[in-house]
Design a protein around this nucleic acid. Structure first.
Ligand code: MN
Ligand code: MN
Ligand code: ZN
Ligand code: ZN
Lengths: 130, 130
DNA sequence: AATTAAATTTATACTAAGTCTAAATACTAC
DNA sequence: GTAGTATTTAGACTTAGTATAAATTTAATT
């Protein structure tokens, strides 16, 4: 509940994540920061990513891989992973409200949130010679 | 592609996972095996869980927690996690085919599979005094 | 049955991702 | 400017899981 405090490090990490076309892991973020001339402590990168996630400025994605990925897009959306090349693309269609209501009714839960990860083969991997 | 080989250890672990009402982690499985009088090496439990998962006899669930959970139910189904007490319940309604088709069309992927994890508050946590 | 070969288990070392700690810096409020 | 709070840093530590190599079990061959 305390007010936002964007230090140099946090700002640089926020800018970087927001500028990414993809969904980098913490390790990839550190690598890119280094390439941009920054050199922050290992722990600071993790602390900042958590801080920015808690502040709602970025999102942490747990896609079932060993490492979390980070996303500059904060609107609710989902992801699809190519099992051939590993790329992660956006899924902007939300699950139908009817289905969510049905799940809530059948499980007796208040459903607050859903994480959806699709798995499949992307266009480039499907058409390798195009 | 080799034929199934259920050793004593693998069989005991399969039986245990299939008998569970819940979705135990590897650590919980080891603990329960020990309580049932078994004493297998740490690595054997992990190896067996992988073997059984690859053989399609059990399922590995990656629900975004730090450890995988295992599931004796092998039909396609989904899960809902209570953010108060941590319990994991079954979700047996599948996402509507229309929605999956829409996702495939918009992303240009061949969609093979989807992982869905709902998050919310379970009945007991909602009605604590009942 | 004895011998060889292949698969599995075991104990233990190692890895990867992330958290924790305590000292050093930086920022705020007075 | 001083005191107090927040953050960064370096490095130790934790957790979940994998890799390795020797020992054991199982299967195949003579
Ligand atoms: Mn995204
Ligand atoms: Mn289940
Ligand atoms: Zn691909
Ligand atoms: Zn609950």
């Amino acid at each position: 509940m305390s007010r936002l405090n964007l230090t140099t490090q946090r700002k640089a990490i926020l800018d970087l994540v927001q500028s990414c076309e993809d969904h980098p892991t913490a390790a990839e973020i550190m690598e890119r920061l280094r390439m941009n001339g920054h050199q922050f402590a290992y722990g600071t990168v993790y602390n900042s990513l958590r801080y920015l996630t808690d502040a709602g400025l970025i999102r942490e994605l747990k896609l079932g891989e060993t490492a979390s990925r980070y996303d500059g897009r904060t609107e609710d959306h989902y992801h699809i992973v190519c099992k051939k090349c590993g790329r992660v693309d956006e899924v902007l269609s939300a699950p139908p409200a009817d289905w969510i209501r049905e799940v809530a009714a059948k499980t007796n839960y208040d459903v607050h949130h859903s994480q959806v990860v699709f798995e499949g083969v992307c266009y480039s991997c499907k058409h390798p010679n195009a």
